[in-house]
Design a protein around this nucleic acid. Sequence first.
DNA 1: CCCCGCCTGTACCCTAGCGTACCGACGGTT
DNA 2: AACCGTCGGTACGCTAGGGTACAGGCGGGG
Lengths: 240, 240
Amino acid sequence: MNSPIHSPLTNHLIDSLPHRDRVSVLADCETVDLAFGKVISEPGDQIQHAYFPLDSFISLITNLSDTERLEVAMVGSEGMLGIPLILGLDESPLLALVQGEGTALRMPVAVFGRHLEQSSALQALLNRYLYVLMHQLTRVAACTHFHQVEARLARWLLMTQDRAHSDQLHLTHEFLAMMLGVRRAGITLAAMALQSRGLIRYHRGDITVLDREGLIEASCGCYSFDRGLYRRIITEADVP
Amino acid sequence: MNSPIHSPLTNHLIDSLPHRDRVSVLADCETVDLAFGKVISEPGDQIQHAYFPLDSFISLITNLSDTERLEVAMVGSEGMLGIPLILGLDESPLLALVQGEGTALRMPVAVFGRHLEQSSALQALLNRYLYVLMHQLTRVAACTHFHQVEARLARWLLMTQDRAHSDQLHLTHEFLAMMLGVRRAGITLAAMALQSRGLIRYHRGDITVLDREGLIEASCGCYSFDRGLYRRIITEADVP
DNA sequence: CCCCGCCTGTACCCTAGCGTACCGACGGTT
DNA sequence: AACCGTCGGTACGCTAGGGTACAGGCGGGG
């Protein structure tokens, strides 16, 4: 059913570590399956594990009230879940919801803390990741405010496609509406517009990305911004 | 002209350090005057100093385009400017604009880095501050999206009042419009609504807060949320 | 004392998106 | 084969806020 573009089953952060540190980290990770819809943590929860998604991915969602929800970040194989741990805190500020089922590596908080102390490479890398996330958060605030639903939807689909490592996604309009903080009917219109332009095809919760380049054009610049930022700060980093 | 509520001329972060560390940090700080409107750094700039505002305060602004600007954070005596430095990076992601003139302590990047290495208390404290900021950023994204201009304006005035240590503020509608990412005319309406309820008084750029409690009620919960978060994570922290 | 520039009030039409609701259609289950 | 729950298309009135433009008033500088 899935048509993986490339699903290397690695986590890019861990993969970027120097050999010695990577081996050490991997030795203390366990692999877990994350089922779609699973809530890994809720606001205020004590964080139990640091997660490094492989082919799963996770949405981070603010929940001001029942009607005021907004996805503010997405974590896939390019990232890590459990940012506060990098800062020495173990309180989850956001709702972490598994949005793409699959596997992830994880590590208990205490073990993670030890690795963080012992590996300056890990620390430097995660600091950089944190910087990227912060910068992206500021961008999300502005993007959500200024850009239209159709462009935001396009952006969101692209982000999801990257993390799903597939051009087939399973997403109802209802779900998308929650992520973007808009009406379900608003998604329907935006999705129809994208479909009529031949950029996507969808049918009862199955969305297929047909024209990636076109989607990028239909999206606001924020998608490209995010990617560029990640590449510049993480991928091209000369981590010692 | 100013009617300071209490302007202790200290920075709360530095003030929270253990005696030994505080003395050490203060010894390496210089005091500078920040003039209203001064741009301390622009996106992409290399950061030169870490700033700890005393009675000045600074707006952090995203600048997607000429028409798409939004203030995403505010730094006064409760905080620090130069977050990336905490993460070992020296790139400024945002426009830092002096919004309330006054004084600040500052320290060159290299010196700051040394202190950060040497003082685990400083590191822990700034990590906590960073956590607060991140959490607030997620809140800003949702608040900006869901809440109305009037409530957001009320929130913004309260935040400014706190950092100005005064109930008299100097702000044109034009400026407020830029901060909140809305039309100038939108601010005029919202401000008139607040004034007609007796919460503020304003006249050609001079805004006086008359009823703080009332303003809090008129604002969205986000103001109280921010304060509570700061208190919980920073003020009540048992930093070693 | 006058002028001019800045700040604000206001007005007009326009659009995006909200809230809500209803209905049809698809498809898995029994 | 019938059923029913899920998903998506559509519609209607409504509101917040955008874009723009103009006019009036305050107040500092000449």
